[in-house]
C-alpha cells in the first residue's frame, strides 16, 4: 500500500467515525456537552496539527547547529592542502 493510500484510509476511517457519531447514525444518545465538543473536533485537530508543525519546525530552525568550527577547520586545511599540493608539483 502506498503512503497516499495509507493516509486516505486513515482519514476515511476517522472521518466516517466522526460523521457517524455527529449524525447519530449509531443510535447513541450522546449528552449535549459531548455533541458540542464533537461537532467542531476536526477543526480543532487541524489547528493543533498546524500548531505542532509550526512549533516543531520553529524549534528545529532555532536549534540548527551552526558549524563555525568546522568551517574554520576547513579553511585552515585548505591552506595546508594548497601548500602540500604545490610542493608536489600541482599547478592550480
Amino acid at each position: 500500500m502506498t503512503k497516499l493510500a495509507q493516509w486516505l484510509w486513515a482519514l476515511a476511517l476517522l472521518g466516517s467515525a466522526w460523521a457517524a457519531l455527529t449524525m447519530g447514525a449509531l443510535g447513541l444518545e450522546l449528552p449535549s456537552s459531548c455533541q458540542e465538543v464533537l461537532w467542531p473536533l476536526p477543526a480543532y485537530l487541524l489547528v493543533s496539527a498546524g500548531c505542532y508543525a509550526l512549533g516543531t519546525v520553529g524549534y528545529r530552525v532555532a536549534t540548527f547547529h551552526d558549524c563555525e568550527d568546522a568551517a574554520r577547520e576547513l579553511q585552515s586545511q585548505i591552506q595546508e592542502a594548497r601548500a602540500d599540493l604545490a610542493r608536489r608539483g600541482m599547478r592550480f
Binding site: 528545529r60 530552525v61 540548527f64 547547529h65
Partner: peptide
C-alpha cells in the same frame, strides 16, 4: 539534522526551507 550534525553558511530562510521540507 541529528546529534552534532549541522550546517554552516545558511541564512535563516535557507534553514527554514530545509527544516520545513524535512518535516
Amino acid at each position: 539534522y541529528k546529534g552534532n550534525g549541522g550546517v554552516y553558511g545558511w541564512d535563516l530562510k535557507r534553514k527554514i526551507i530545509s527544516r520545513g521540507a524535512n518535516f
